[in-house]
């Protein structure tokens, strides 16, 4: 069976758990921004957590099915409709043949996920199907979804259970847990306190590479950069100007800014869903 993209949203890409094997060659991990929501969607359909699915940023897509299929929608609330009728998120949805599934702008959260009971047929590149647009790899020819694209779904399987999970609530103001980062000790006690006492706002210049935060500039130590070193998802770097940037799924594999803290895995998923203009404070977990 297949689905045809009728409208592509802002930036919708195919993602899975990511491409871990070639970080040493400078190839970013990519993968789900909010792994929790993505795994939930796959779990509802008895898919392996790593199964490739559609990730949508801020604005949902619209597609047509040429056959019946079970799907699940999780993550940001993009008010899904099937054939014009509102449907629930976080549960198995039976889409009829020639069904139209449409999603709109997110009222809460940033990233929405659509999983299918079957496998979206795209070739893995370096061990992952995750789309990485800058290098044009993964997904559908390395591109974000476009109007007119047709995705084949192989081995569609019937899902008879009416599985449903608790709805996630995404707030516009959150506190997230983090661990001290590799360069935490390079910052003065005042800078550390400044960071932990500040409320930061998600900048509109945020994307899958990183979430840029606006707010109090951190007073930088004299040595304000390091010899380039590895970057992992959830690392909070402080630029020379004193701005925090949270490195996310498509982040470069190495960088030279000071790494102040690392978000916990849970915090990474929480922050991924914090909308532009949303606010965050950080709390060290010891």
């Amino acid at each position: 069976m297949n689905i045809e993209i009728i409208s592509s949203g802002l930036s919708a890409t195919l993602q899975d758990d990511g491409r871990m094997a070639f970080l040493d060659k400078g190839i970013p991990a990519c993968g789900f921004m909010d792994a929790n929501a993505a795994h939930l969607a796959n779990g509802l359909l008895n898919n392996a957590p790593n199964t490739v699915l559609i990730e949508m940023m801020l604005l949902g897509i619209k597609f047509r099915t040429n056959d019946a299929i079970a799907i699940a929608i999780t993550g940001a609330n993009m008010h899904p409709k099937v054939n014009g009728k509102e449907v629930a998120m976080n549960k198995v949805l039976q889409i009829p043949k020639d069904g139209i599934v449409s999603l709109s702008g997110a009222s809460t959260g940033m990233y929405g996920y659509i999983a299918f009971a079957g496998e979206i047929e795209v070739a893995p590149v370096f061990g992952s199907k995750s789309t990485y647009v800058p290098a044009a790899i993964g997904g559908v020819n390395g591109k974000a979804l476009e109007k007119g694209m047709v995705l084949s779904i192989s081995n569609p399987k019937p899902i008879n259970v009416h599985a449903k999970v608790k709805t996630n609530t995404y707030l516009n103001s959150i506190e997230v847990a983090c661990l001290k980062g590799p360069e935490w000790e390079l910052f003065s006690l005042e800078s550390q306190t400044q960071f932990l006492n500040s409320t930061y706002t998600v900048s509109k210049n945020s994307n899958r590479i990183g979430i840029r935060l606006e707010g109090t500039l951190i007073s930088m130590p004299v040595v304000d950069e390091i010899i380039s070193s590895g970057i992992v998802k959830g690392t909070v770097q402080i630029t020379k100007a004193g701005n925090p940037i949270v490195m996310m799924a498509d982040a470069p594999t190495t960088g030279g800014y000071l790494r102040m803290v690392n978000l916990t895995e849970k915090a990474i998923n929480q922050l991924a869903q914090l909308p532009i203009g949303g606010t965050v404070t950080f709390k060290i977990r010891t």
Partner: peptide
Amino acid sequence: CYHYLKNNHIKGVVSLIPAYNSLTVL
């Protein structure tokens, strides 16, 4: 260190990022 960890397949180690003076072990 990078070659050792790459060649010895340590259980649970999923990736390595060698750099100038650091090695990130995921």
